Simulated scan of single mutants.
Amino acid sequence: MASSKRHQKSFNMMHSENLENRRINRKINKLKVEMAEISEQQEYIKLGQKEMRERFEAIDSECDQLKKETEQISHASENVQLRLNIMLNILKAQQANDFAKAADLTCSLGLV
């Protein structure tokens, strides 16, 4: 009888170990699936980050280009304003019959 109890106890331990091994294997398989999903999500995030970085670089490049164009427009506007001021002074000099000054201003207009 003692032998049969030992045999039963041994059987129960093996059965318990098999159950425990199956539980562990299920957990391992579940973790593998979760790790694969996480890996896929990380790739998706990396792709999104790359796209965002490219968009920001494009926006930054456009911003630099707009800044250059704005500076060129501002410089051109300053030149136009300067020329208009000289033309106004030419008209004032002509009205005052100061033709020498008007001639000098006309020459300077060609330099601007």
Rank of each mutant, 00 (worst) to 15 (best):
M1P: 04
A2R: 06
A2S: 04
S3R: 14
S4N: 12
K5T: 12
K5A: 12
R6V: 08
H7D: 08
H7N: 12
Q8A: 15
K9D: 06
K9C: 06
S10A: 04
F11G: 04
N12Q: 13
N12S: 12
M14A: 13
M14S: 08
S16K: 14
S16D: 07
S16V: 05
E17V: 04
E17G: 11
L19I: 03
L19P: 01
N21C: 04
N21D: 11
I24H: 02
I24M: 02
N25I: 09
K27P: 00
K27T: 03
I28N: 07
K30Q: 03
K30T: 02
L31W: 07
V33E: 12
V33T: 06
E34H: 09
E34D: 11
E34K: 06
M35C: 05
S39A: 06
E40V: 02
Q42D: 13
E43Y: 01
I45K: 05
I45R: 02
K46S: 11
G48H: 05
G48W: 04
G48K: 12
K50F: 04
K50C: 06
E51N: 07
E51W: 03
M52F: 15
E54F: 08
R55I: 14
R55T: 07
F56G: 04
F56N: 15
I59G: 05
D60M: 11
D60V: 02
C63R: 14
C63W: 11
D64Q: 15
D64W: 14
Q65N: 14
L66F: 10
L66T: 10
K67N: 15
K67S: 15
K68T: 13
E69F: 14
I73T: 08
I73G: 01
S74I: 14
S74C: 13
H75R: 08
A76E: 12
A76H: 03
A76T: 08
A76Q: 03
S77Y: 01
S77T: 07
E78M: 07
E78K: 11
E78Y: 13
E78R: 09
N79P: 02
N79H: 09
Q81W: 06
L84R: 10
L84T: 10
N85Y: 10
N85P: 02
M87S: 12
L88P: 00
N89W: 00
I90A: 00
K92D: 15
K92F: 03
K92Y: 09
A93S: 13
Q94H: 09
Q94L: 07
N97A: 12
D98A: 08
A100C: 08
A100T: 10
A100S: 13
K101P: 04
K101S: 08
A102F: 00
A102P: 01
A103Q: 14
A103E: 10
D104M: 09
L105I: 00
L105G: 00
L105D: 00
T106F: 05
T106C: 03
C107E: 09
S108I: 01
S108M: 06
S108K: 08
S108Y: 00
S108A: 01
L109F: 03
G110T: 05
L111H: 07
V112K: 09
V112E: 15
